[in-house]
Amino acid sequence: MFDLALGDYFAPLQNLANYVSELPTSVQLRESQYVMPWVFVLHVVSMCMFAGTILMMDLRLLGVGHMQTPFSQVQRRLFPWQMAAMLFSSMTGLALVWGNPLNYVVNIIFWVKMLAMLVAGLNALAFHYITEYTLVDWDAGQTPPAAAKLAGALSIFLWANVIVSGRLIPYALTWFRS
């Protein structure tokens, strides 16, 4: 067991978590026998939709998958599904935290997941505002340039990190003392 003393660092957030945990909706979520497991189930289903559509676009960026479809088409067609799935998984994720805020606020693996999501978002923005301007040169047929491959590889790594750390959140209690 590693002692992280997260409670000290997250004292202000802990007050917020305390407040949320006493709200009637939080108590109801926590005490419901069936709602929480089903929120978990829906979180996994939305993850499938989100990760699936993101990872397939990343494979195209890396130049290793769906090469017979131009990148712009893969991206344009998957975008609405990615956004819908992001909304769906954010809502189910928020409900999970809302029901058990004290469990998450001092959980180091939860924060690793949040950080990975943040960096994955920055990576997507960097691709959109920088690398995508070169798209006309490699949209169809050709292998994407190194910058595009880097964006794809980073995205796969970061979202895999989000999934792995998401699954490991409950185990933080047995691995770390916070």
Partner: peptide
């Protein structure tokens, strides 16, 4: 836990290749 976690990462790829 780690095997479970990678089962889920694989699930992401599986879902994507089916959804395409």
């Amino acid at each position: 836990p780690l095997v479970q976690a990678f089962h889920l990462v694989s699930l992401g790829f599986l879902a994507g290749s089916i959804l395409m």
